[in-house]
Design a protein around this nucleic acid. Structure first.
Length: 484
RNA sequence: GACCCCAUCGUCUAGCCAGGUCCAGGACACCGGCCUUUCACGCCGGCAACACGGGUUCAAAUCCCGUUGGGGUCGCCA
């Protein structure tokens, strides 16, 4: 406990910065600080199709906003770099080859089609155990090497033991035993030459001298693979500590369908970073004196990961809001003014709103009323607005469904959120569904602003930001569903 | 379905590891009251839980087993 711990947060830059990332980062950071160790930020961008730079940038910004400052990372460097996995490909390849040479891994030439068919077959036959059937494991090494040399596409798979047990140890749960035969021959190196999470993660944690792997509970089932890798490499294992998953009210894993999960949303909705952090800490951690308001520094002073409780905590926006109110009210006027200025009323934001409003008002005093929806968290839909939420020819529930499709298929995946991108996205959606643009744009306009008369839709949405548009569209969907 | 994890008020949790001090404590929400020109804040009070069944023991929320319930995983995603 007093030995300096090296911990890490290893997010994948494939979407909006996630509240779960902040949650896990918080405890990693607290342990590193508590023990005088180091907190590392490592970007796990080995998924070449989903990873993107905008997402990476948002992770940096969100963690910085929260004050979860890392000691080593892609931007600040450090003695164990590079800290971006896409820049470490050679390292993973070498390690994978080492395992192949040792006989702990093997090349697999199975095609995606064969794998899909295999899965389908297993599913249909209700096989007790789904997974790779070891088809390529029996290929003689010499032949495999020849085929690889000939350029035949392949992956590298881990050769799991066929019998016996693998016992792993979790700081919070103690020993967990798995039957080795249950564990799949995991792909370590993909056919594009990039590693999978499992290989990259283990190799990097070792090379970066990570002492405590604190991550989400969803990783427990792959722990035996990781432990097998440590064994095969002959490396000492770090301490594993799997945090309970944040939950929706129905107790499923927290998801954007049922909760705001983007850190950008919390920021834009006016949560103070220290309050969010405090609330997140409450999800599993209790101070020795049980008080529920405390600072990051106070947490660090007494933090002990072994005392985290295991029940999956339901993320309760209401209690977060209460806590945030406590923090807000405790600020001096000047401090609060500065918070408002840096967040909601920054010059940068005002400079984007003002041009949209300027030509539509005649007196300064009209500004507040006209531009109100640019500054509020939620908008209300009055009777007239509710009617305009409905698409021509559709019932309210059908309109809700269409908005959901728009959100999930078109808007959610957008990493760039400017007027041009939005216009192309919305028009594309209309075209694909054979909807006249005009018929979709009014309902969307009303959904995101609460009004029928607003500045141009795409500019307005761009200024409002993805999170605000998202949550307002969701609210509009609820309203529509309630209309029947 | 298979494997794994988990189980205290509606929600977050303390207590559990080292059984008695627990007819279970705190917080959110809710209800009532006080304060107050209003609302809010603040303060005071109330409602509300050891999932169930066995076992061990003088004694179990605490230890063991089972059942039930919930969750996660089963991808060339992480």
């Amino acid at each position: 406990m007093t030995r300096p711990a090296r911990t890490r947060i290893a997010p994948s830059p494939t979407g909006d910065p996630h509240v779960g990332t902040a949650y896990v980062a918080l405890f990693n950071m607290a342990l590193a600080r508590r023990t005088g160790g180091a907190f590392v930020l490592r970007i796990e961008d080995t998924d070449r199709v989903r990873s993107n730079e905008a997402s990476e940038r948002m992770i940096f910004e969100a963690l910085s906003w929260l004050g979860l400052q890392w000691d080593e990372g892609p931007d600040v460097g450090g003695p164990f770099g590079p800290y971006r996995q896409s820049e470490r490909s050679e390292i993973y390849r070498e390690h994978a080859e080492r395992l192949v040479a040792q006989g702990d891994a093997y090349p697999c030439f199975c095609t995606k089609e064969r794998l899909d068919a295999l899965r389908e077959e297993q599913r249909k036959a209700k096989a007790a155990h789904l997974g790779y059937d070891g088809h390529c494991r029996t290929i003689p090494p010499g032949e495999a090497a020849r085929r690889r040399a000939a350029g035949e596409p392949h992956v590298i798979r881990l050769a799991m033991p066929r019998e016996g047990e693998i016992t792993v140890r979790d700081l919070l749960r103690g020993e967990i035993t798995f039957a080795a035969a249950q564990i799949d021959d995991q792909v370590l190196l993909k056919s594009d030459g990039f590693p999978t999470y499992h290989l990259a993660n283990v190799v990097d944690d070792h090379l970066m001298e990570i002492t405590h792997v604190i991550r989400a509970e969803e990783w427990i089932s792959s722990l035996p693979k990781h432990v097998r890798l440590y064994e095969a490499f002959g490396w000492e294992q770090p301490v594993f500590c799997h945090l309970p998953l944040l939950r929706n009210a129905d107790r499923s894993k927290i998801s954007k369908r049922k909760n705001p999960v983007s850190l950008n949303w919390y920021r834009r909705a006016g949560f103070l970073p220290e309050a969010l952090l405090n609330y997140l800490a409450l999800m599993g951690w209790a101070m020795p004196d049980e008080r529920d308001e405390f600072t990051l520094e106070e947490l660090i002073e007494v933090f002990d990961p072994a005392k985290i409780s295991l029940g999956g905590p339901v993320f309760d926006l209401e209690k977060l809001t209460w806590l945030n109110g406590r923090y807000l009210r405790s600020l001096e006027t000047g401090e609060l003014r500065e918070r408002l200025r840096t967040e909601l009323l920054s010059d940068a934001y005002l400079d984007r709103v003002i041009p949209l409003v300027q030509e539509r008002i005649d007196r300064l005093g009209d500004f507040m009323e006209y531009a109100a929806f640019f500054f509020t968290n939620e908008v209300d839909y009055d009777e007239a607005a509710r009617k305009k939420l409905v698409l021509k020819g559709l019932t309210p529930p059908q309109s809700a469904k269409l908005l959901r499709k728009l959100l999930e298929e078109v808007l959610d995946p957008l990493m760039e959120w400017d007027a041009g991108t939005l216009e192309a996205a919305l028009r594309g959606f209309c075209e694909a569904r054979e909807i006249r643009p005009g018929e979709l744009f009014m309902p969307v306009r009303v959904a995101v602003t609460g009004r029928a008369a607003t500045p141009p839709l795409f500019e307005t949405m761009a200024v409002l930001g993805k999170e605000v548009c998202r949550s307002r569209i969701r609210r509009a969907m609820e309203t529509l569903r309630g209309m029947k």
